[in-house]
Design a protein around this nucleic acid. Structure first.
Length: 468
RNA sequence: GGCGGCGUGGCCAAGUGGUCUAAGGCGAAGGUCUGCAAAACCUUUAUUCAUCGGUUCAAAUCCGAUCGCCGCCUCCA
């Protein structure tokens, strides 16, 4: 299996440190607001990569941090005249809720910065002990001159960075690129006790501390958005490697941006849709499908039309899943079942093994659906066929991609009074059709459609589907 | 200024030296079925890969130049 590693800028053979165990960390949100669909792209693609690793037999421990103390939260709390913990808990609840709606599997751990103050302090102490921290009056800073390899992830050269660095006003930093490990509290700011006085952790340090605590000092995969490469991930490396003397991360994965009208979607530009807004109008699966259609590392220009197209694709997938579900128990025990399922499974694995090529993986899935539909039309497949079709659809569509949810598909109500009533109406409509009373026949179909029952006429008679 | 990415059919997008007269999705056109729909399937829809040169037996894929777009270098997924 190949993974593109930002660190080497090459695709590398994936060899976790302790297979089949894989340790994976993804940078989660700062909970000061609802997240937008650009953020969602990272969360969804991270989720799919994790799912695929599991599908391939790895035992993945997946950690996603929640930054619940930070300048933005302090600012928001001040605006709303409330405390930071109130803001943090409100938006972290919203975050977890929206993740679930997006069909993103729960992380094994969702560590929060404020619950890891001890661990954070310990890491800072180690950095201090190794001579890479200094007291800059308002903060304890990391001294990047102590880490020779600074810039190795982002490929930046120190002198170039420094000439381009913007001048900060009133900075107590020795070097503009130094960054805060611990920010001393100003009056009225939330704070925790520390050897350097009351204060709060800097932004980068929490990821180092929590990654180490939950996954160990060296981990396999660390991922996040492209914009985190510098300075966030660069700083994480600097801190962690000075503290432990060990390589922090083996594979760095970065997600491309979601652009809107040729610009990066971002809070500060105000050109965003929150995940909530989108979920109010389109199924989560459509958004996942849209993201699957582009490779995770490249940019994606978002328009609502693309989401509409993806919704149509999702309809086709859903109809297929429904067909499978309807037939898995009702089809004859014996029938033509010579269909090469293995071909698709192998192809899927082959293309996904190449740096999680989801557009190709999806193409394999669509090929399978088309071929299977065609097979069903041209043969009389039995239970065995539908059972295998179910397995494969479940593996690719549900387990890995999270775009098929068999449990949520409304198969026909089993022999309930409702289905009897529907069948009664179908019979009456059949009579109307025989009488050439198409007006009545169409009215029955239309009205049933309005309440979520779709009728489908075919040679074998009329069938119905519940589509709500 | 430094670094990185991108430009493929009406739209999205994969492919990065030969199997590419270029996967897949959406859209469009025709067809099967049908009273009409719906669903599904079948057929058609790029001899061409921003432009211009070059390397090669062979290029969308490598090299150079040009044009256009985006991102990072400051908080940001």
């Amino acid at each position: 299996m190949l993974i593109y590693n930002t660190f080497s800028r090459k695709k590398e053979e994936f060899e976790p440190v302790n297979p089949p165990a894989v340790t994976m960390y993804i940078c989660g949100p700062t909970v000061y607001d609802y997240f937008h669909i650009g953020n969602a792209r990272s969360f969804i693609m991270g989720d799919i990569i994790r799912r695929y690793l599991i599908f391939r037999g790895y035992r993945v421990k997946f950690v996603m941090n929640i930054t619940d103390i930070d300048d933005k939260i302090i600012k928001k709390a001040a605006e709303e005249k409330t405390d930071t913990s109130g803001i943090a808990s409100r938006f972290s609840d919203a975050f977890l809720h929206d993740l679930e709606k997006l069909k993103i599997n729960q992380a094994d751990v969702f560590p929060r910065a404020t619950e890891h103050i001890e661990e954070i302090i310990d890491v800072i102490k180690k950095i201090e002990l190794n001579g890479a921290a200094y007291d800059g009056l308002d903060s304890i800073y990391y001294d990047i001159s102590k880490f020779r390899e600074y810039g190795k992830l982002s490929g930046k050269k120190l002198d170039e960075l420094e000439s381009g660095a913007r001048v900060e006003v009133n900075s107590a930093k020795r070097d503009p690129l130094d960054f805060a490990l611990w920010k001393k509290a100003k009056p009225g700011e939330p704070s925790w006790e520390s050897p350097w006085g009351p204060g709060r952790p800097g932004w980068h340090i929490e990821c180092s501390a929590m990654s180490m605590k939950h996954l160990g000092e060296s981990i396999d995969i660390h991922c996040g958005g492209n914009d985190l490469i510098f300075p966030h991930h660069e700083n994480e490396i600097a801190q962690s490697e000075i503290a432990t003397g060990k390589k922090f991360v083996k594979y760095w994965l970065h997600f491309g941006f979601l652009n809107i009208q040729e610009e990066k979607m971002s809070k500060s530009l105000g050109n965003f849709f929150t995940a909530r807004e989108i979920l109010g109008k389109y199924p989560a699966e459509a958004l996942r499908l849209l993201y699957l259609q582009t490779h995770y590392s490249g940019p994606l220009s978002f328009t609502e039309d693309l989401l509409i197209s993806a919704s149509k694709g999702f309809e086709r997938i859903k109809n297929f899943a429904l067909l499978i579900k309807e037939n898995i128990n009702s089809s004859p025990a014996y029938g033509e079942s010579r269909f090469d399922f293995e071909k698709y499974r192998l192809k899927f694995t082959e293309v996904m093994d190449d740096d999680f090529n989801t557009p190709k993986g999806l193409a394999v899935f669509y090929d399978f659906i088309k071929d299977a539909n065609s097979f069903i039309q041209n043969n009389k497949p039995g239970k065995e066929f539908f059972r295998e079709a179910y397995e494969l659809t479940k593996a690719i569509g549900e387990t890995v991609f999270g775009i098929v949810h068999f449990d949520e598909i409304n198969a026909k109500t089993e022999a309930g009074i409702e289905s009897k009533l529907i069948e009664l109406l179908i019979e009456m409509r059949q009579q109307a059709k025989l009488d050439k009373n198409y007006k009545l026949a169409d009215e029955i179909r239309l009205k049933l459609g309005a309440i979520g029952v779709t009728l489908q006429d075919s040679k074998e008679g009329t069938t119905y589907r519940i589509t709500v």
